[in-house]
């Protein structure tokens, strides 16, 4: 399956760089930030791959200086019964990535959640609001520099 995916990707998009890795039978491909929409379109629409089920979009905060965040896409192909992980690094100084909600509509809310929790902006997203926290909240809770107990006074309580 790994060869098929790489072949199809190379055939459709000859100019992209793809790195692969495997852990516990899960295939991961790492792509450049700028190519993410193109890669996802091929993965979804190619007749041999058909990754039509976007399970999840999330991000990882590595708490490092370069490429602080990694955006992770979990895809599933019902045709091949195969699960694939796609990754793209995002730097903190340029904290944005193109949206894939035009490819899978289900990515819409996942990206809003990532925006809420990590503060990564998704370009061209149709409705980029906070998912869980109130709109006035200033922080991004899942970043590693945010304490579990929160910042006192950042969320108001009603008067007694």
């Amino acid at each position: 399956m790994k060869e098929i995916i790489l072949n199809q990707l190379n055939a459709s998009l000859p100019n992209i760089q793809v790195e692969t890795s495997e852990f516990k039978d899960e295939l991961t491909i790492q792509v450049q930030k700028k190519d993410i929409v193109e890669v996802c379109k091929v993965l979804k629409n190619d007749s041999e791959l058909k990754f039509i089920h976007c399970i999840d979009v999330t991000a990882i905060d590595w708490a490092r200086r370069k490429d602080r965040f990694t955006v992770v896409y979990h895809l599933f192909s019902l045709k091949n019964k195969f699960q694939l992980v796609v990754k793209a690094d995002v730097d903190e100084s340029d904290c944005n990535i193109d949206t894939v909600s035009s490819v899978w509509r289900s990515a819409n809310w996942h990206e809003r959640e990532v925006y809420d929790m990590y503060g990564i902006t998704f370009n061209f997203h149709p409705d980029l609001r906070r998912m869980y926290m109130p709109e006035e909240f200033e922080y991004h809770p899942l970043r590693k520099d945010f304490p579990v107990l929160g910042i006192p006074g950042s969320l108001p309580l009603p008067k007694k």
């Binding site: 999840d56 999330t58 990882i60 992770v72």
Partner: peptide, 30 residues
């Protein structure tokens, strides 16, 4: 390493995604 495992819950697909750095607690859990 990183794993994703899903099961069929009554409501649908429930999956956990871990990023482990070899510590006792997950670095990331989705």
């Amino acid at each position: 390493g990183e794993v994703y495992h899903a099961v069929e819950n009554p409501k649908g697909e429930l999956g956990f995604y871990f990023v482990s750095k070899g510590e006792g607690h997950p670095w990331k859990c989705k």
